[in-house]
């Protein structure tokens, strides 16, 4: 069973990484920093619901680290890491009150938590409280993107089966 688990996690990580690298090549949607589709999060949402907390955390951590090496820069690592941690924690907490048909809600709130983490790091790094003015626009766009990735994850779960 260990081999099966390792294989599954490695496969999910590589899928997430491929999505992440391809998305990084696309031109940014807007000129506002920090606004992305976050398509790799489809895998995170799926993992939280279908493969459990520890595995989801490992997949996310591996994707963030490898994604930074392949397509990011060191200065973005802190933002991804803080956002990713908060997003994961929020979704794990929400899983307790959500069914598998409500993954979209976990994804939306997870995306909002991700943006809150990003802004917190940005405020800490630049020492400028004024960056909080970005929070509403980031939250609004993040929630929209989160809804989309959540619905994708939900469709994915439906297709390939839930907990295994």
């Amino acid at each position: 069973m260990q081999t099966r688990r390792l294989t599954r996690d490695a496969m999910l990580t590589s899928v997430a990484l491929i999505i992440f690298v391809i998305e990084a090549q696309l031109p940014p949607l807007t000129s506002i920093p920090g606004i992305r589709m976050g398509l790799a999060n489809i895998i995170t949402v799926y993992a939280v619901f279908a493969v459990g907390a520890a595995d989801a955390a490992v997949i996310l951590a591996a994707r963030i680290l490898l994604g930074t090496i392949f397509a990011g820069s060191l200065s973005t690592l802190m933002y991804s890491a803080a956002g990713g941690c908060l997003c994961l924690l929020a979704m794990l907490a929400l899983k307790r009150v959500l069914t598998e048909r409500q993954m979209w809600a976990a994804s939306v709130i997870g995306a909002a938590a991700h943006n809150a983490g990003q802004i917190a790091v940005a405020v800490a790094v630049t020492g400028t409280i004024g960056l909080l003015a970005y929070l509403p626009v980031l939250l609004a766009s993040g929630m929209t993107a989160g809804l989309f990735t959540g619905l994708c994850a939900q469709a994915l779960t439906k297709r390939i089966g839930g907990r295994r």
């Binding site: 920093p33 820069s73 200065s75 933002y79 940005a122 790094v125 630049t126 020492g127 400028t128 004024g130 960056l131 003015a133 970005y134 626009v137």
Partner: peptide, 11 residues
């Protein structure tokens, strides 16, 4: 909403 250059920590 401020202009930011996060790599340079300029706001």
């Amino acid at each position: 909403v401020p202009i930011v250059c996060l790599p340079h920590r300029l706001v």
